[in-house]
Design a protein around this nucleic acid. Structure first.
Length: 322
DNA sequence: AACGGAATCAACCGCCGGTTG
DNA sequence: ACAACCGGCGGTTGATTCCGT
């Protein structure tokens, strides 16, 4: 089902991802975000291209991503959205929390396209008889947009608060934990989850300014999720709180799991110390500093080779939430 | 049991638009 | 204004699994 692993002429690995690679990528992104997909593979100890890492993260490893069977509700939504917007898979995905655009696209081509062809009336009746949820979502987004424009405080949050450029991961994690309204924006767990995952909210602060437009786009996506979630039983399986708990410094060993010794972590923290705050300093990739044997590449492994499973999620659920 | 076609889905590729210097 | 870079998107590919004969 998946291309077998191979190396291209540049020495980059292609094809199926191994559990070990997944583990490396997941561990690295959970801990350090994805400020720069192009440089991430090297820092994470992966011989993949950045695009490949991004795809793997978005479609499979990202917290909250749903796998497997689509519910009837989800299928109806996909059909409806597709009728209105066409092959805008990313837009459809934004309105189906937890579903990756690639998976929706695949599901459309393998199941729904035929179904719609065979039942054109069914889908048409549905389209006419129900108020379009997509239109609702659009309206919601527009009203959110208006409120964003109307609200000085919202803009202030972009232009005069740390959110604009220098929002640290610590701050964001604390936001997602206490759910308190920030600068006039009611932060729900889910909207924050969206905010976090889309560019990790602070993702582009290294090397790129987090522009107002980009922020608005992401915020609107977050609000779109929120509105859908209000009327839908669908919700991400992993909450932002769980995600934010990854900021925890509890690296205590869990039974039955292969742990790389703390020295590996310590070395990386030494690296952080040497460069100041990894999250607030401008991103400078000084590869000359990183020796070949730099331990990032062997960062914590959650892969239990006795049972052949990645136990990352289980481990994360066991971590204390604080 | 063996074979071949269909179905599935992870991953690749190329293009486009936004951002930065 | 422009070129380079980067992230994101949609189309496509291809290995594997399923299913019918």
């Amino acid at each position: 089902m998946v291309r077998g692993p191979f190396y291209d002429k540049n020495g980059l690995k292609k094809g199926a991802w191994t559990p070990e690679e997944d583990c490396k990528l997941k561990s690295f992104v959970q801990r350090h975000g994805h400020s720069n997909w192009c440089k991430l593979p090297k820092l994470a100890g992966l011989s993949r291209c950045g695009k490949s890492c991004r795809l793997r993260w978005v479609n499979h490893l990202q917290p909250g991503v749903k796998r497997g069977n689509f519910t009837k509700e989800e299928e109806d939504l996909i059909i409806k959205f597709h009728e209105e917007a066409g092959n805008k898979w990313s837009m459809i995905a934004r309105n189906l929390p937890g579903r990756a655009d690639n998976e929706i696209k695949n599901h459309w081509h393998t199941h729904l396209k035929k179904y719609v062809k065979q039942n054109p009336k069914t889908s048409e009746v549905k389209k006419q008889s129900e108020t379009s949820q997509l239109c609702k979502a659009k309206e919601n987004r527009e009203s959110e947009s208006e409120s964003l424009h109307a609200s000085d405080s919202s803009h202030q949050s972009l232009e005069s608060t740390p959110l604009s450029k220098e929002l640290s991961s610590t701050k964001l994690f604390s936001l997602s934990r206490d759910h308190s309204p920030v600068n006039g924006i009611n932060c729900t767990e889910d909207s924050l989850a969206s905010l976090e995952t889309s560019e990790n909210a602070f993702g582009n602060m290294h090397g790129k300014k987090y522009t107002k437009r980009r922020f608005e786009t992401e915020s609107l996506h977050a609000s779109a999720h929120y509105h859908i979630l209000e009327s839908s039983p669908l919700s991400p399986e992993v909450s932002s709180a769980k995600f934010s708990s990854l900021g925890s410094t509890d690296h205590s060993p869990k039974p039955g799991i292969n742990w790389i010794e703390e020295d590996s972590l310590a070395s990386f923290e030494t690296f952080e110390e040497a460069f100041g705050d990894f999250w607030t300093e401008p991103f400078v990739a000084d590869y000359t500093y990183i020796p070949d044997e730099f331990p990032i590449s062997q960062y914590i492994s959650y892969y239990d080779d006795r049972i052949g499973l990645d136990l990352f999620d289980q481990v994360m659920q066991e971590l204390p939430k604080n």
